[in-house]
Simulated scan of single mutants.
Amino acid sequence: MLVPRLRVVQLVNGIALNTKMGGAERFGVELARHFDQARIEPVVAALWEWDREHEQVWRNRLAIEGVTTVIGPPKRERQAFKNFLESIVSLGRQLEKPVDVIHSQCDFGDVAALLLARQLSVKLLVRTAHNELEWAKRPWRRWIFVNSIYPLVYDMELGVSQRVVDTLNQRPMARWLHKKALVSYNAIDVARFTNGIPDTSQFIREKLNIPPTAPVIGSVGRLTKQKGYHHFLEAAAIVSATIPSAKFLLVGSGEEEANLKRMAQDLQLQNHVIFAGAQAHVEPFLSIMDVFVSSSLWEGLPTVILEALLVGVPVVGTAVSGTEELVKGSEIGCLVEPGNPRALALGILAMLSHPPDAAARRRAKDFIKHQFSITSISSQMEQLYLRLLRQKDNGGVI
């Protein structure tokens, strides 16, 4: 007897990956790509259109791989609430029902899933918290949705690190309902970094005008306040006073870009700091770094640290959620206090003075391959969906 496939929708902000979007969106897309399509009919639903040309490349790629994509209206900063409602209406019209599972990977997606559930006859609602501080800019939404409503209506809540899960499980409503969130780590496509990638480090250095012997301290991410890049620049000023040849590479774009460029000028770092902009492929840029820096003020579990460790680049990171677990587990890096540029600079100088040896780098790579491969995580997620659906069908408590 032929068993029908489960229709599983990964709900994300957008699919302009590595340009407008971050690790949460990449994770949702990679999950959909790696599901067993004998059992799962994967769909990626993006709330908004952010970069049509870049998104079309991903839509074409996903279509070839058997993943359906639907995208809502263009993202507008003005009339944001109306724009959000337009997205709900658009996705509701495009998504084929019934939907077995909606799995949200973002703050707005968490709310959208609730509004779409009845219309699409959704059987199972799942969400992943990608940050220990959800709705950071609008804490009242965190109090209403995360702390009060979600424990009541979501069948399962997941967190990308133990600290995120601990935060979820401490909510009074969740404790009263005996609802337990589970750890489900972010993951990456290991093949992107291991399947015969050509060595382009010399080309990238020449392109960025970095001398062959200059140490490169870098970071990859959205240029937002959360990432703490103003502390990164303050640390760069301290490090460059000790190592004048050092170069500091920032790969990414975002709302703080202009402010950070002005700050670099004010700190007289214009000959030291390189703003490389958003890049569709970050692997070549990671490969030229001697130290990767994560200066975030809060996090979930940064996928870019997974990528840096998989390339064998040691990490100096702030002791925030997720970063702490990864750096301790990998053994090639150090942790410093968030918001402390001097501590960040001392960590960078220590890592440059005493870099990990080849054996330590191999162990770090193996740690990432074994614990954070999207192949194994997607299989675990499939099993979770099936188990939860069986429990609901049998009238059991999830």
Score class of each variant (00 low, 15 high):
Pro98Cys: 10
Asp100Leu: 03
Ile102Tyr: 04
His103Asn: 10
Ser104Thr: 12
Gln105Ile: 05
Gln105Ser: 06
Asp107Trp: 06
Asp107Cys: 03
Phe108Leu: 15
Phe108Gly: 11
Gly109Pro: 07
Gly109Asp: 07
Asp110Lys: 02
Asp110Leu: 04
Val111Phe: 10
Val111Met: 09
Val111Ser: 01
Leu115Trp: 07
Ala117Ile: 09
Ala117Arg: 14
Gln119Cys: 05
Leu120Ile: 12
Leu120Cys: 09
Ser121Arg: 15
Ser121Pro: 00
Val122Phe: 02
Leu124Asn: 02
Leu125Asn: 05
Leu125Ala: 06
Val126Gly: 02
Arg127Leu: 11
Arg127Asp: 01
Thr128Cys: 07
His130Glu: 07
His130Ser: 05
Asn131Cys: 07
Glu132Tyr: 07
Glu132Phe: 04
Glu132Asp: 11
Leu133His: 12
Lys137Glu: 14
Lys137Cys: 06
Arg138Ile: 14
Pro139Ser: 09
Pro139Leu: 13
Trp140Gln: 13
Arg141Lys: 14
Arg142Pro: 00
Arg142Glu: 13
Phe145Tyr: 15
Asn147Pro: 00
Asn147Lys: 15
Ser148Gly: 13
Ser148Arg: 15
Ser148Pro: 01
Ile149Asn: 09
Ile149Ser: 10
Ile149Pro: 04
Ile149Gly: 00
Pro151Lys: 10
Leu152Ser: 08
Leu152Gln: 15
Leu152Gly: 08
Val153Ala: 11
Tyr154Glu: 06
Tyr154Cys: 05
Met156Ile: 10
Glu157Gly: 00
Leu158Glu: 03
Leu158Phe: 09
Val160Pro: 00
